[in-house]
């Protein structure tokens, strides 16, 4: 009895400890975004001045805009390209399939910094001016392999004859694709898109090497501003943390709640 109680306590402290470790720094970051002074260590009263400063700071607003724009566009393009390629891969001969999957693994297995300098060398040897376009292209390049990797397993679980059956019934290949295959692998496509979005949204290393001419995303801005004490970074971070937490809670808890509702209806 005593042993089991001890074990329960140990478990509790383990979990509590690790959660404290994960959340205490984030909490302190958020708390001091409301500080009335520039200090990040001593509390001088509540204020929202850093939020006002954030929204008045054009550089920060433009970074938020760049981050969102690049994340939305790169997610859309990499999801479409990745899904179609995955479907193509699943219907290709073995040699082609292996080839693509192996090359596709490069950006995933390689350290980010290597992918980044490779792209930087590519853009500068083609003398492409670094900016929004290079950042967007780079984001599509590094997120597409992840989309392919997420969608492929869903295709493996699919009945290989299903598209053929649809076409035998008179569907064109495009219809078979849109009306039959894609709806069946939709969960994989959605999780691939989510992955692509967050990867693009949080990216620093690759964006840092391939962008320029004043185009900065949030990560690059945080990097350049982190040298000085600046609670506006805390304000920006707080907003990001809140949005991400809310989205994750909705994405993860919605299915559970729905299940409960269904059970209640029964």
């Amino acid at each position: 009895m005593v042993g089991s109680k001890n074990r329960k306590l140990t478990r509790f402290f383990l979990i509590a400890g690790v959660l404290l470790f994960f959340y205490a720094p984030i909490a302190s970051l958020m708390v001091f975004s409301f500080n009335d002074s520039r200090s990040l260590t001593s509390w001088a009263g509540f204020s929202t001045q850093w939020y006002t400063a954030l929204f008045a700071n054009r550089e920060m607003m433009s970074a938020i805009y760049v981050t969102l724009l690049v994340a939305l566009l790169s997610t859309f393009i990499s999801t479409v390209v990745g899904t179609l390629t995955a479907i193509g891969i699943s219907k290709s001969r073995k040699i082609i399939r292996e080839l693509i999957i192996n090359v596709n693994n490069f950006p995933i297995l390689n350290p980010e910094i290597v992918t980044a300098i490779g792209l930087m060398l590519l853009f500068s040897s083609l003398s492409i001016e670094k900016g929004l376009i290079t950042m967007l292209v780079a984001h599509i390049i590094f997120s597409t392999p992840y989309v392919i990797l997420t969608v492929l397993p869903k295709l493996r679980g699919l009945d290989p004859d299903i598209a053929e059956a649809a076409m035998d019934l008179g569907a064109t290949p495009a219809q078979a694709l849109w009306k039959v295959i894609i709806p069946l692998i939709m969960p994989g496509v959605i999780s691939g898109a989510l992955l692509a979005f967050t990867m693009s949204f949080d990216d620093f290393v690759i964006s840092y090497f391939v962008s320029g001419n004043g185009v900065k995303n949030i990560s690059i801005l945080v990097y350049t501003m982190s040298k000085r004490i600046n609670p506006t970074i805390n304000a920006l971070s707080t907003i990001l943390v809140v949005i991400i937490t809310v989205v994750l809670l909705i994405v993860n808890l919605l299915p559970i709640l729905k299940k409960k509702e269904l059970r209640g209806a029964e």
């Binding site: 930087m120 853009f123 500068s124 001016e129 320029g212």
Partner: peptide, 9 residues
């Protein structure tokens, strides 16, 4: 180095 990598100001 930034100028070298093709940025123009």
């Amino acid at each position: 180095t930034k100028l070298l990598s093709g940025e123009k100001y």
